[in-house]
C-alpha cells in the first residue's frame, strides 16, 4: 500500500524522512509562503532546485510522480498556456510591461516575446508549487502530519480526524471495489468498453448507497473503539509517531527560519514597500519602467 498513491504510511529511512513531524509541517508552510509570494523566476529557481534535491534524496517511487508531472505538463503547460495565448494575448504586456511582437495574425491573435515569458514563468511557478507538495507528501506520514499540526497549535481532535481519514482511505477503496464487482455481476454495466461514460456515471450512484451504509458502520465502531481507549480524555495528548527532535531537526529548522526571514524581507521590503511596477521579472527588464 505504501507509495501507491504517493502517500507514505510507514516512515522511510532517508534523512528527510527522519525529521520530526513539526519540522516537516513548519518547513512546508514556509516553502508554500515562499512560492506564493513571488513571480520572479530568479527567486523561485533556487527553491525548485532544493525541492528536487529533496525529492531525489527520498528515493521515491517515480511512477506516480512522473504521472502527476506529465499531467501537469499537459494541463497547465500545454492547455493552460494555449488558453492564455488565445484568450488574452495582452497578458504579456500587463504583467511585464513590454510588448515585442513576434508573430501577428490579427489584432486579437498574436504572440509576443513577453507573452511567451509570462506563460513560461507561470508554468514554472506551478511546477514549483507541485514539487513542494510532492516533497511534503513524500516526506510525511499521516500520523506525523497529525502530530506536526498539533504541535503547531491545531486542536488534536481535528488532527486525529485527519490521520483517521488516511487510515480509512484504503478500506473504503476496497469496499468500493467489492461493491462495484458485486453490482457488475448483477448486471450493472460499469465496464468502460461496454457502457458510455454518462451511463457509467449514472450507474455509479448504485454504489454509493451501500458504500455509505458500510462506511457509517465503520465510523460507529471506530468511535466506540476510541471512546473505550480514552480518546478526548484530556485537553492534550501525546503522539507515538512524533519523533524527538534531533540535531538534524535543529539544523533544518534553522535553515527554515532563514528562509522565513527572507520571506518577511521579500514581502515587506520588495512587495509592499518598493513594489516593482510589474509583477513578472524579465531578463530584458522593464522593471525600472
Amino acid at each position: 500500500m505504501n507509495n501507491r498513491l504517493l502517500i507514505n504510511y510507514s516512515p522511510g529511512s532517508t534523512p528527510i524522512h527522519k525529521l520530526n513531524g513539526a519540522t516537516k509541517v513548519f518547513g512546508f508552510l514556509i516553502i508554500t509562503v515562499y512560492i506564493i509570494m513571488t513571480f520572479d523566476v530568479r527567486v523561485m529557481l533556487p527553491m525548485l532546485i532544493l525541492c528536487s534535491i529533496g525529492i531525489v534524496s527520498m528515493k521515491p517511487n517515480w511512477k506516480p510522480i512522473l504521472l502527476i508531472l506529465s499531467f501537469l505538463f499537459v494541463m497547465a503547460g500545454v492547455v493552460g498556456s494555449l488558453m492564455i495565448i488565445l484568450i488574452r494575448p495582452t497578458s504579456g504586456y500587463t504583467h511585464t510591461g513590454g510588448e515585442t511582437i513576434l508573430i501577428q495574425w490579427t489584432n486579437h491573435f498574436f504572440i509576443s516575446k513577453e507573452l511567451i515569458w509570462y506563460v513560461s514563468a507561470m508554468f514554472f511557478k506551478r511546477i514549483c508549487s507541485l514539487s513542494t507538495a510532492i516533497l511534503f507528501i513524500l516526506a510525511i506520514t499521516p500520523s506525523e502530519l497529525a502530530a506536526g499540526f498539533n504541535k503547531l497549535g491545531m486542536p488534536y481532535k481535528i488532527c486525529t480526524v485527519i490521520s483517521l481519514a488516511f487510515r480509512t482511505i484504503p478500506d473504503i477503496a476496497r469496499d468500493y471495489i467489492d461493491i462495484k464487482n458485486s453490482l457488475m455481476m448483477r448486471g450493472v454495466e460499469l465496464d468502460s468498453r461496454k457502457a458510455s461514460l454518462g451511463k457509467r456515471l449514472k450507474q455509479t450512484v448504485f454504489i454509493l448507497s451501500p458504500l455509505i451504509m458500510t462506511s457509517f458502520g465503520r465510523i460507529g465502531t471506530i468511535a466506540n473503539a476510541m471512546d473505550l481507549r480514552g480518546f478526548s480524555k484530556h485537553k492534550q495528548r501525546t503522539w507515538y509517531s512524533e519523533r524527538d527532535p534531533t540535531a538534524a531537526d535543529w539544523v533544518a529548522r534553522a535553515i527554515i527560519l532563514l528562509v522565513a526571514a527572507f520571506c518577511v524581507y521579500y514581502i515587506v521590503y520588495i512587495r509592499i514597500m518598493n513594489p516593482p511596477p510589474f509583477s513578472y521579472w524579465t531578463p530584458w527588464g522593464y522593471w525600472n519602467g
Binding site: 504510511y9 506520514t141 487510515r167 465503520r218
Partner: peptide, 10 residues
C-alpha cells in the same frame, strides 16, 4: 474497524 492507528505501534 477498531484499528485506530496507522501502524501496529501507534
Amino acid at each position: 474497524a477498531q484499528f485506530v492507528g496507522l501502524s501496529v505501534g501507534e
